[in-house]
């Protein structure tokens, strides 16, 4: 929902970033207000995933220029865990498996870290179990997954549901979901999208990173951005996604080529 007077949650200005020696982001600009759902689309290698990693503070990426402010605060100056605690959430494209670490324990420690930041009280094991069981409904997940190690042996769909469960527990203000739809069958996609829709409200915002329309059939974006060569090339409403679906990405290349001096190499 677009409300011009809604507070700005996230403001990205001229963001440049590289991984190792390779420049990937080359001047990204994006403003996200409360209540909005943004979709960032683009081909593989256009820089979408890098954008999400940079926002979450992955150590392999170096910001070389630009700024990101989150509710007026310099986000880039914060360690990854602080970003999470103040309400920035990254849903991973490939959630990592962590053998031995109990999923339930992990969820509890993370939830309590977020609550402590908000001045809430720490939940003990019992109180937390009540909370987590309630939130499991958001993604229709089997409680048995709580007793397993974090993501270990989970199917692709189970991993993605576990991501949304974390989102439901941490209640972020800005959720960036990186290719949440990849590897999901149609039922899992419906459940995951349903979860995202349930969690979206007037105070928070969602940034969906995807290159297919099918996720956007289930979650309606307010804005669609097309990324190419490390920048946002075009911004429009949900109809832009449909246009992409119809015309493919070839026109992006043409548009890009027309735009000197940005080089054509795609990172």
């Amino acid at each position: 929902m677009i409300r011009p007077d809604a507070p700005v949650l996230l403001e990205i200005k001229d963001l440049h970033a590289r991984v190792e020696d390779k420049a990937i982001l080359k001047g990204v600009n994006l403003t996200v207000r409360a209540g909005e759902i943004h979709a960032v689309m683009g081909r593989n290698g256009s820089g979408k995933s890098t954008l999400s990693k940079v926002l979450a503070g992955h150590p392999a990426y170096t910001v070389t220029a630009g700024a990101v402010s989150y509710r007026g605060q310099d986000l880039l100056a914060l360690d990854p865990e602080l970003r999470a605690r103040i309400g920035v959430f990254l849903g991973f494209q490939y959630p990592v498996e962590i053998p031995g670490v109990s999923n339930l324990e992990f969820l509890r420690v993370a939830t309590n870290a977020r609550r402590a930041e908000q001045g809430g009280e720490e939940l003990d094991t019992f109180a937390f179990e009540d909370l987590v069981r309630e939130r499991l409904n958001v993604v229709q997940m089997d409680p048995a997954f709580l007793d397993r190690s974090v993501n270990e042996g989970f199917s692709g769909g189970e991993k993605k549901r576990n991501e949304i469960l974390q989102m439901a527990l941490l209640e972020p203000l800005v959720a960036i979901l990186d290719e949440t739809d990849s590897g999901l069958d149609i039922d899992a996609l419906r459940i995951v999208a349903g979860g995202v829709n349930q969690l979206a409200n007037a105070d928070n915002a969602t940034v969906l990173i995807t290159h297919y329309q099918r996720l956007l059939d289930a979650i309606t974006p307010d804005y669609v951005h097309v990324m190419a060569a490390g920048r946002i090339l075009r911004t429009g409403g949900k109809e832009l996604a449909l246009e992409l679906e119809e015309r493919g990405y070839d026109w992006v290349d043409q548009e890009l080529a027309a735009q000197a001096p940005v080089p054509l190499e795609v990172a």
């Binding site: 979450a56 503070g57 992955h58 150590p59 360690d79 990854p80 865990e81 602080l82 970003r83 999470a84 605690r85 959430f89 990254l90 991973f92 959630p95 990592v96 962590i98 031995g100 670490v101 324990e105 992990f106 420690v109 993370a110 870290a113 977020r114 930041e117 974090v150 974390q166 941490l170």
Partner: peptide, 17 residues
């Protein structure tokens, strides 16, 4: 990074693992 991105501090993340 995964643990950190869920708000868990570096030390605690290592200790958990």
């Amino acid at each position: 990074f995964y643990l950190q991105s869920r708000g868990i501090g570096f030390e605690e993340a290592v200790s958990m693992m």
